[in-house]
């Protein structure tokens, strides 16, 4: 069969078609490229020629200040990364538990369901910064625990708030798996827990991966808010440097570092969801 294929030359019509599609393709690439460049140049010229550009450039994009601030802001960012690491684990565990609690069926579980529902209602509504104050300054005030570092309480506050969001995402995923999947799993003799673990959750997580990644990236930025407790993270370090140099450039540096931090995750999530789509959905042109 394959020999035939090597031997067969595409017809003139097909060659024409391919050439046409190639031309069409090249044309759209050129158009989009040119329009992007024109757009960028127009914006650039507008900014650079604005009356206040000199001052803004000086106080926000001062290279010397950036270089000077880099070590301390970088050190602060390392704290952000550590907090992010523990917060992610905490959110995954707590959100999963809450989501399961909310999806339990039967009147016996009413208190658990109500508790989970109340939790998500409360912490999705409450601004993160207020949770940070309550947890960061309130709980230590109870004098129940020994002195813990500020970033510890910051992490707890992040976990508290983000678990509420992520639990709802998990729940949406669990409920989006068609009931027939549960039936099929239970019919094989799998327990409720095993059905959840082996059949429902894998499908649920796949469906909500983009939403989860979105929440993760949002949290990546909000890690910077632990600075309000006084922990010296990238934002706090930038604040200190800004005060010292009387120049806003360290903030710009911190902002760029946060963007760089989120880039790998954004790309990984794009790649991962693309792979899932290719694997599980039959491809078609439309």
């Amino acid at each position: 069969m394959n020999n035939d294929r090597e031997a067969r030359r595409p017809s003139a019509t097909e060659l024409d078609r391919r050439a046409f599609r190639r031309r069409q393709n090249t044309r759209s690439v050129i158009i989009s490229l040119v329009s992007t460049i024109i757009f960028a140049v127009v914006i650039w010229l507008a900014v650079v020629n604005s009356p206040g550009w000199q001052q803004v450039q000086n106080s926000f994009f001062n290279w010397d200040t950036i270089v000077q601030a880099f070590p301390r802001v970088g050190e602060g960012l390392w704290l952000n990364i550590r907090v992010l690491f523990y917060a992610t684990i905490g959110v995954a565990v707590l959100a999963f538990i809450i989501a399961i609690m909310r999806t339990l069926r039967g009147p016996v579980f009413f208190p658990l369901r109500a508790l989970a529902a109340g939790y998500t209602d409360l912490f999705r509504g409450m601004p993160l910064i207020i949770v940070l104050y309550l947890v960061g300054f309130g709980i230590p005030g109870l004098n129940l625990f020994g002195r813990m570092p500020l970033e510890f309480w910051g992490t707890i506050a992040l976990v508290t708030t983000y678990s509420a969001y992520v639990a709802e995402v998990f729940r949406a995923g669990i409920e989006s798996v068609h009931p027939s999947q549960r039936l099929a799993a239970r019919s094989l003799g799998l327990s409720y827990a095993k059905t959840l673990r082996l059949v429902v959750m894998p499908q649920a997580i796949r469906k909500v991966t983009p939403a989860l990644m979105n929440d993760f990236i949002a949290m990546q930025k909000d890690v910077g808010l632990i600075s309000v407790l006084g922990a010296v993270d990238a934002v706090r370090a930038a604040q200190i440097e800004t005060a010292a140099a009387f120049n806003f450039s360290p903030y710009v540096l911190a902002g760029l570092l946060f963007v760089l931090l989120s880039l790998p995750m954004i790309r990984i999530s794009d790649w991962y969801t693309g792979r899932l789509r290719r694997r599980e959905q039959m491809g078609a042109l439309v």
Binding site: P10, T13, F20, R21, A284, L285, V286
Partner: peptide, 22 residues
């Protein structure tokens, strides 16, 4: 139904070529 793109050859509906890229 043009749900797949042919690799070669032509398809017509009422003498109108469907496989024309245009």
């Amino acid at each position: 139904n043009l749900l797949e793109q042919v690799d070669d050859g032509q398809i017509f509906l009422d003498d109108k070529e469907l496989t024309d890229p245009l």
